[in-house]
């Protein structure tokens, strides 16, 4: 594979994971925080950025652990436990570092980090990376793309919900009800991208 065609391949993975194979709206992973923290665009951006960062890094770390620890001993079936442990440790570590060296960033982002540990999209991205047999570089681009895709979805949702405060919504549908309906409509729109790009 030439360098440029390799680049194109990585870009395809990136854009596929952002749009056609959006981890949130096509795979429905990470719904919990998606519904809970999409009241305001500002907080959604904060959580989104945290997810992008953590997802990119943990996919890389999990790839290394998979390749150099699990595969040599043929204990791939332990990947769920190992990946979760690595994600949790990484988030803890990052939280400490940010709190120490950038209090402003910590205030903006740090409070979202603990929320992310239990975000299934993060684990999901690592597991997809295994299933699709990505190389390390591909995995990183996939993690980055999935993170951006997740952020895109939550920020869009927060934007809609901010506008929604001015709408008259039937009482029974207020809150989670209308949010789920919107999520469904957004997912339909994203499913429209299916087949445009294929990253897998």
């Amino acid at each position: 594979m030439t360098l440029s065609s390799h680049m194109i391949h990585l870009m395809v993975i990136l854009f596929a994971s952002i749009f056609t194979d959006n981890i949130l709206l096509a795979r429905f992973l990470g719904m919990c925080s998606f519904l809970a923290v999409s009241r305001q665009v500002k907080t959604a951006v904060g959580l989104g950025l945290a997810v992008v960062f953590v997802m990119t890094c943990t996919v890389a770390l999990d790839w290394l652990a998979y390749r150099y620890i699990l595969q040599p001993y043929q204990i791939e079936y332990f990947r769920f436990i190992l990946f979760i442990v690595i994600i949790a440790a990484f988030v803890q570590f990052i939280e400490m570092v940010i709190e120490r060296y950038s209090p402003v960033l910590y205030q903006n982002l740090g409070i979202f980090l603990p929320l992310i540990t239990v975000n299934c999209a993060i684990l999901g991205a690592s597991l997809f990376m295994v299933i699709r047999e990505y190389t390390l570089l591909e995995g990183i681009f996939f993690g980055l793309g999935s993170g951006i895709g997740w952020m895109l979805a939550i920020v869009a949702m927060a934007g809609i919900r901010e506008k929604l405060t001015h709408a008259r919504i039937p009482k029974g549908l207020q809150g989670p009800g209308i949010t789920l309906i919107i999520a469904g409509l957004m997912a339909l729109a994203f499913i429209g991208f299916t087949g445009v790009l294929s990253g897998g």
Partner: peptide, 8 residues
């Protein structure tokens, strides 16, 4: 449902 840190 989880709450946002601000709301908490």
């Amino acid at each position: 449902m989880k709450k946002s840190p601000q709301q908490e």
